[in-house]
């Protein structure tokens, strides 16, 4: 019974919502909105459980005098300051987010900068993650590195102009590297590396002869990568996702998939 009732409720709700998509007639069009409101109301009550969980978790840490209990203490103090300040702002100004409310000051000068700080840290994490991802260890990661470099240069202001010196330095360094290591090999391996060295050095020097053409070419190439290979890849994933999502929903609606309940 404990599993049957949720499965029956899920089945009826799922079929109803699916049918509503096809019925444009009143009052059916409003049922979806109505169920969304129910969800919001239930979430509102559930938030009390969430707050209870949060406070109890940190209160236990303080009681046990855990190593990092001071953070828990700060959290509980901040929580109650924000709560009572908000209630008081409601009483004093008619709402916490009214233009002259002091709570709005708290929100704009403490909460928003903290939120923005967390978001801006993302820039550093992207740099460190990109460094790991773009190491040319094999063919795939080399292709990723090259396409990422083109897209990045094509998308930033003056990217086309930056490309010329960047390409020159890269090709000269790469050409010199292959020239250096070619001396350590013999036979075909040496010839192949000499070939690569000459190719890179020639391309590096040749870039100056076609600088104007190349500076326009990079933004176009960047757009092409984003519009075609990237969009194609994303659409393939979205297609699979959509089918997966429908199959998963059918499994849940018909009670085949019960992993989420007891």
């Amino acid at each position: 019974m404990q599993t049957q009732i949720p499965v029956i409720v899920t089945f009826i709700s799922g079929i109803l919502i699916m049918a509503l998509f096809f019925i444009p007639r009143e009052p059916f069009t409003q049922i979806e909105q109505l169920t969304s409101r129910w969800y919001i109301i239930i979430s509102g009550f559930a938030l009390l459980l969430g707050i209870d969980s949060l406070i109890l978790y940190h209160w236990r840490k303080i009681k046990r005098r855990d190593k990092d209990a001071v953070y828990s203490l700060i959290l509980i103090i901040s929580f109650f300051i924000a709560l009572f300040w908000g209630i008081w702002a409601w009483y004093a100004y008619g709402g916490p987010f009214i233009s002259n409310s002091s709570y709005l000051w708290l929100f704009q000068n403490i909460y928003l900068p903290l939120d923005a700080t967390m978001f801006s840290i993302l820039g550093f994490f992207i740099a460190s993650a990109s460094y790991r991802a773009f190491r040319a260890r094999n063919l795939e990661s080399s292709l990723l590195l090259i396409s990422a470099a083109i897209v990045m240069m094509g998308r930033v202001p003056f990217g086309g102009s930056i490309f010329i010196p960047f390409f020159f330095v890269f090709m000269i360094v790469a050409g010199s590297y292959f020239l250096y290591i070619a001396t350590k090999y013999t036979g075909f391996n040496a010839i192949f590396r000499y070939f690569l060295a000459i190719l890179f050095l020639s391309l590096g020097i040749g870039v100056f002869f076609y600088s104007e053409l190349l500076s326009q070419f990079i933004p176009s190439l960047s757009n092409w990568i984003m519009q075609y290979p990237n969009t194609a890849g994303q659409r393939a994933i979205i297609l699979g996702l959509t089918l997966g999502s429908i199959a998963f929903s059918l499994r849940i609606i018909f009670g085949i998939e019960r992993g989420y309940i007891r």
Partner: peptide, 20 residues
């Protein structure tokens, strides 16, 4: 982001297929 920072990543529909 997950592909570059994680050891293993379930891509898209693999997540839906996981429970099965």
């Amino acid at each position: 982001f997950f592909i570059v920072s994680c050891d293993y990543t379930l891509i898209g529909e693999e997540l839906y297929a996981a429970s099965a």
